[in-house]
């Protein structure tokens, strides 16, 4: 067996692995039950909650990540390397631990005051958004930094020499040039927020019709031995996931790189 065949065999192994897992869902497919589970109030609430929280968390993440990624990509400043390393923090710490840390923060005097003065985070909608934001902000910054690193600084320098302020150069040159990378980053951040489970359940709990996002709903149904119901919810997540991945490919590969 040569290297080519061997490596292709491994590529197909990946396909069988994930394809097999998705395929096994259909073993429990019961037509009427599927529609009933899909259109139940509880499922529709979970879908709406997941879409809403993931979207809000992504907007906040990206709003924070764009300027910080730009700083990390373009400037040298004290603490830069430390911040850069810290971006991977949510990835190396278990999501449950991350959620626990958020809970612990809200038990400190500062956290308590913050909750009293602003909004309720623990066991609430805002808590879900916060948990998703905390888990995605680092990744979003890392992805956006990669997109900005690929945009040559030279363009901004020329724009500045032609009279553009740093803000004008950023909005008229850098941002449009990094557009495709930014779109891909936004979509992947959103996907990560949508699938977030560990931190969300730790901070917001798993209250049906209140804080039950799609991944939590899957977990809850499985805990109740409702395999058919779980399969339905998983299929919904898988469909959204594939739509996202194909959308990203379509948007990022459509035109050759500038």
């Amino acid at each position: 067996m040569n290297l080519k065949r061997l490596s292709i065999a491994f590529a197909f192994l990946t396909l069988f692995l994930y394809g097999g897992l998705i395929g096994s869902l259909f073993y429990f497919y019961r037509g009427p039950l599927f529609l009933e589970a899909l259109f139940s109030d509880r499922t529709l609430f979970s879908i709406r909650l997941s879409l809403a929280t993931a979207t809000i968390a992504t907007i906040i993440s990206v709003a924070v990540a764009v300027p910080s990624a730009y700083a990390l990509s373009r400037f040298d400043f004290p603490g830069k390397r430390f911040i850069d390393t810290l971006l991977e923090f949510p990835m190396i710490v278990s999501p449950a631990a991350l959620g626990a840390m958020i809970l612990i923060f809200f038990s400190t005097p500062l956290g308590e005051v913050l909750q009293e003065r602003t909004v309720q985070f623990v066991f609430a909608f805002a808590g879900i958004v916060l948990a998703q934001f905390v888990t995605t902000a680092g990744v979003a910054t890392r992805l956006l930094k990669a997109a900005l690193d690929e945009t040559p600084r030279r363009y901004e320098e020329v724009a500045r020499s032609l009279g553009a302020s740093p803000f004008q150069a950023f909005f008229t040159i850098t941002l449009p040039l990094a557009k495709r990378g930014i779109i891909a980053s936004v979509i992947l951040t959103w996907a990560k927020a949508l699938g977030e489970f560990g931190a969300t359940i730790t901070v917001a709990g798993s209250m049906a019709m209140k804080t039950e996002t799609l991944p939590i709903a899957i977990f809850m149904r499985l805990s109740g031995a409702d395999i058919e119901g779980s399969a339905v919810l998983i299929l919904i997540l898988v469909s959204i996931g594939f739509a996202i991945l194909y959308g990203t490919r379509f948007l990022t590969e459509k035109t050759p790189h500038a």
Partner: peptide, 20 residues
């Protein structure tokens, strides 16, 4: 002064025409 307030235009080696 920052580059935009100098009044000196710059033409780099790769020209850096804005591709978009």
């Amino acid at each position: 002064l920052p580059p935009e307030r100098r009044g000196i235009s710059y033409l780099p080696q790769d020209l850096a025409l804005f591709p978009h």
